[in-house]
Structures are given as C-alpha cells and as structure tokens.
Design a protein around this nucleic acid. Structure first.
Lengths: 112, 112
DNA sequence: ACTATAGTGAACCATATGGTTAACAAAAAA
DNA sequence: TTTTTTGTTAACCATATGGTTCACTATAGT
C-alpha cells in the first residue's frame, strides 16, 4: 500500500467528475432509489447506467443491495467525508484567494 | 451551452482525481511556484508535468504566467468555489448519513 | 557568440472511460 | 407455466488519459 487515502480520493473525485454520477448522488441524497429509478433521469441504456452505478459503488460512494429483482442503492458517506476533508483542508488557503479575488473585483479588475 | 456550471464541475473534479495534480494544488496553496518546482516533487518527465499543469489550467484551477523563461503558477480559486459549493450543498444529507453511520458503528455494526 | 536551462509541442503508445448491442439470469406477474 | 421486468455480463467501439521520447523556442548565463 503506497497510500490508501490517496486512492480513496482518486476514486471519489473521479466519480464526482461525471454529471451523470453527480445527478445520481443528488438523487440518492434525497433517499434510496433503484437502478431503474436512477436511470429514468438519463437517456442512457441500462447497461450504461449499470456501469455508472458500478463506478459509484467501486468508489465506495454508494451501496447496492439486491432486494427481490431490484437493486436498491443508497449513499455510503465515508469516502465523501475524505473528499470534503481534503477540500476543507485547503479551503483556508482558497478562501484567502477568494478574498483577494473579491477585493480585486471590487476594485474593478477584469474577471479571469 | 447546455449547462456551463456542470462543465466547470466536471473539469474541477476531474482535475482533483489525480494525486499528482492534488499535490500540485497543495503546493500552490502555499504560494506561487514554477513548473520546475512543481515537477521536483514527482518522478515524471517535464512534458508529463506540463500536461498536468495544462489540465489544471484548462480546469481553471490555476493560472500560468510566463515570466522570463519560467512559467509561474498560482491558484485561481473561482472553480474550486463551485466544487466546494456542490459538496456543501449535499453535505447536509451526507452528514445525516454520517450520523447514521456513527450510530451504527457505535452499536457495533460492521464497517462496510 | 556560445551554451545551458525552462518549458512547450508533436508524435506515439498503452490503458481507461463511456457508450452501444446482444445474450442471459432471476424474480414477479399473468 | 409462460411472459415480462429488472438488471447484469460480455464483447465491442471510439475517444480520452497519462505517460514516454524527440525536436524545438526562448531566455539566461558564460
């Protein structure tokens, strides 16, 4: 193991980099859903959806549980915690930058 | 434009999904650095490093400025703000899950 | 004027990603 | 029991990603 936490973040941020998967997480943040329910919001074939669900599962962001013939998905928060923690750790510095940007813009600087 | 903010998030999270690029951002959060300085922390060829820097730049996360023969890089916080905002927007729900997980673990549940 | 340094760009390669269709398994419904 | 529904797996394709080497430009140093 070189660094397990790094890999967790790789997978978490990687999973978050797709709008389809972010939409799935948004949906799941409002409660459990089946794969078909997750699919209904997108114009992607079911196997395609299944792959996205698998990515989220492999990233540890969700859990998939077979119940009857349906697969019910729900959020598994632990790795998201890592992602939030990473951002929070750097947010202090970013906020300084935010402040500097705000000041710059307030003084009429170009936005870029 | 289907949804510009979505694309910003795609690129921001995508850039964050690489440990090399996260390390670069960590370094830059402590202050400006040249491409060579960013490279010194990794065993990757300079063209390889250049590509990572370009990814960060295209994601809008950093700015690259030529000064003499060196390229100085510094963090550009705006898109990071979007990423933080997205996570924050969902964090409420995740925190509920965190609490549920904490309770579950406190009751001796298996961690998985 | 020559040489060394910082960094880019192009071409190339291997692997990963994101989608498809087709075939299948298991559970539910008729 | 037959049929429908849910979802998976496998095979395939196109494009993207992450690395390399080689050639090059531009600036700095000698």
């Amino acid at each position: 193991m070189v660094n397990k936490k790094e890999a967790v973040l790789d997978n978490a941020f990687g999973a978050l980099s797709s709008p389809v998967r972010r939409a799935m997480l948004s949906r799941l943040s409002q409660g459990e859903a089946t794969v078909s329910e997750l699919a209904s919001a997108h114009e992607i074939s079911l196997p395609g959806i299944s792959k996205h669900v698998r990515v989220l599962e492999n990233a540890g962001l969700i859990r998939r549980e077979k119940r009857g013939r349906e697969y019910h998905c729900r959020i598994k928060p632990a790795p998201m915690r890592e992602a939030v923690a990473w951002l929070a750790q750097h947010q202090h510095f970013w906020e300084q930058q935010f402040d500097a940007l705000d000041n710059f813009l307030a003084e009429g600087g170009a936005d870029d």
